[in-house]
Design a protein around this nucleic acid. Structure first.
Length: 569
DNA sequence: GCCGTTTTCGGCCCGACTGTTTTCAGTCG
């Protein structure tokens, strides 16, 4: 799978060209990179089919460059560009408030190529001599570097959620605040967020700014203006707030929910229909007359579109689909009738089977599936054949004490050779079999794909657990050809897991969408190791929605009888 | 460098805030 490499090289080329003041080409390269990013399959497959140039934003020149990357793993043009501009743009570009123009000056005047050079120059106060750089800039950069070193790049959705709630509550309490909404990637339900964006309607913006910038959690005020302020919370999370007029609220929401790519498409569509769209509203192009903007729905309607849910706004076809009135009817929290993949004290969970089942019942679920570890991962206290018998007896007892369906099952390790450590006949005695990769995770893509496919082909597996095994901010995904996995899973009627654990979120929304396109079906799981993990199923719902899932695509939304029938292998 | 129902040449989304500047460039979203 060379998609990531292609994306990285195209983006890096855009950075270098931008630094060289080359007009428009950077946009072209970034668009091309985005196209590859949105692919649901290996770009190499598309190339082999000769369909590379059919992709949007991939023309003759970039097409040839992608071909070279696919064939050789690198790109001569990029290597030469790098020689022209020997700067670590990736590293420097991550520093807040340091963009291409300043990076260019730093290199030309002080030969600064990387973070280390910059730190040294800052210590020696060399930047102060440069035109356009002052004491504030020096401080800003020092702070930015400090931030990079001490904070994770993005916050988990679940980490950000309590702050969203807190800030919303605080603002809503103010008599001069008429409306508060959160926008940004958080509103789109992305698994991680870079910052938080709030929109407020108020007749007294300055009071809002005062309350916002003096919240108890604020560590730094990054900007404070009449209608817009940014703060950094003590945990490092940046929060932006804008005050807008009632008349602009819908257009402002639309703009700040994004994604940027969705907005660009929407604005282009507006232009094509004789309008111009900004955060202030939809205007007639010629007369600049305000048309609509109070609500998002009005704007979408005026542009001839169905209303598009925030989770879909990633410019992966939602606008064209909305034009045809064919957007999916997305699942919601209340469609989830039960949850798969839960652990108890029989392996590495914190609560007993009964406590977990009881909690599930309290949450209103119609079923819970227990899938304690089975295999050789000693740290997880896995079941073995002997303990499995006791485990099943215990589940039988729990069934009599609670008023919901309790599925028996295991989460079994997929061994290095693609076998499972329990026979198919024994597995068939269980209600729900989840198989996951837990060890030997560094295998090359071909081997890893063959390993997982072999398990899927040869055992009565119901669900493939956390398919990529990635941990957000911590661990890269397995080297896996997901398209192949999707195809094999579909053929064997195996459901792909949407793991709701906040640090996993695996599969994520875009991959779910890719699987759906191939015809896969999905099962949402909590991967709960504690009764307090069970309510976290809502994060998985976000991924399912981002993956365009309807009730028919998600096992958890089906009738119990139908679930039982399809689990029988 | 890409793209096209105003097209094969000329356009490519748009505005707020900051700092250093004295009218605006850079950065961000």
């Amino acid at each position: 799978m060379k998609n990531d490499l292609v994306i990285k090289i195209l983006n890096n080329i855009a950075d270098i060209l931008e630094l060289q003041d080359v007009p428009f080409k950077p946009i072209a390269y970034r668009k091309a990179a985005q196209t590859i990013e949105s692919l649901s399959e290996d770009v190499e497959e598309i190339y082999i089919r000769g369909e590379l140039l059919n992709l949007p934003s991939i023309g003759e020149h970039i097409g040839r460059k992608i071909e070279e990357i696919i064939k050789t793993g690198k790109l001569q043009y990029y290597e030469e560009l790098k020689k022209e501009v020997p700067i670590d743009l990736e590293e420097l570009g991550r520093i807040p408030f340091l963009g291409p123009k300043k990076i260019k000056i730093l290199y030309q005047e002080l030969k600064i190529k990387n973070l280390k050079d910059l730190e040294k120059a800052l210590q020696e106060h060399k930047l102060l001599r440069l035109k356009g750089f002052g004491e504030e800039t020096e401080k800003t950069l020092l702070k930015g570097i400090e931030f990079l070193k001490t904070n994770p790049q993005r916050f988990l959705y679940a980490q950000a959620l309590p702050y969203v709630t807190k800030i919303q509550e605080l603002l809503r309490k103010q008599s001069f605040v008429h409306k508060v909404e959160v926008a940004g990637s958080f509103r789109r339900g992305k698994e991680t967020v870079g910052d938080l964006d709030f929109l407020v309607i108020s007749s007294e913006p300055s009071k809002v700014m005062q309350v916002f910038t003096t919240m108890p959690d604020v560590k730094d005020i990054l900007a404070k203006g009449e209608t817009k302020s940014s703060v950094r919370l003590s945990n490092g999370l940046q929060v932006d707030l804008r005050v807008v007029a009632d008349k602009e609220f819908g257009s402002a929401m639309n703009y700040f929910i994004g994604s940027k790519e969705h907005n660009v498409e929407l604005r282009k569509l507006a232009l094509s229909k004789g309008y111009t769209l900004s955060e202030y509203g939809l205007f007639k192009l010629k007369s600049k007359k305000w048309v609509v903007g109070r609500t998002e729905n009005e704007i979408y309607q005026k542009l001839g579109l169905q209303s598009i849910e925030p989770e879909l706004r990633e410019n992966t076809g939602e606008i064209a689909t909305a034009q045809k009135n064919k957007l999916p009817k997305l699942i919601t929290n209340k469609d989830i009738k039960g949850i798969f993949h839960n652990h108890s004290t029989w392996s590495d969970g914190h609560n007993s089977l009964f406590e977990m089942a009881q909690k599930a019942e309290q949450l209103g679920f119609k079923f819970i599936s227990f899938n304690d570890h089975y295999g050789s991962m000693a740290i997880a206290n896995p079941l073995n054949e002997k303990r499995l018998v006791q485990y099943l007896k215990e589940i039988e007892k729990v069934r009599k004490k609670v008023n919901l369906r309790v599925f028996s099952g295991v989460e079994i390790d997929i061994m290095k050779d693609g076998t499972l450590p329990l026979s198919s006949s024994k597995l068939k005695e269980l209600d729900v079999v989840i198989a996951s990769v837990h060890m030997a995770t560094k295998m090359p893509e071909m081997e890893m794909t063959a390993r997982v496919c072999s398990a899927l082909e040869n055992y009565p597996i119901n669900i493939l657990g956390h398919p990529t095994d990635r941990l957000l901010n911590e661990r890269e995904p397995l080297a896996l050809n997901l398209d192949k996995i999707f195809e094999v899973a579909k053929r064997n009627k195996i459901f792909m897991e949407i793991n709701s654990s906040p640090g996993r979120m695996d599969l994520d929304g875009l991959k779910v969408k890719a699987g759906l396109k191939v015809g896969c079906q999905f099962a949402l799981s909590t991967d709960g190791h504690d009764i307090n993990h069970l309510p976290a199923y809502v994060y998985g719902v976000l991924s399912a929605r981002r993956g365009w899932l309807e009730k028919k695509d998600l096992l958890n939304c089906w009738d119990l009888q139908k679930i039982e029938k399809v689990m029988k292998k």
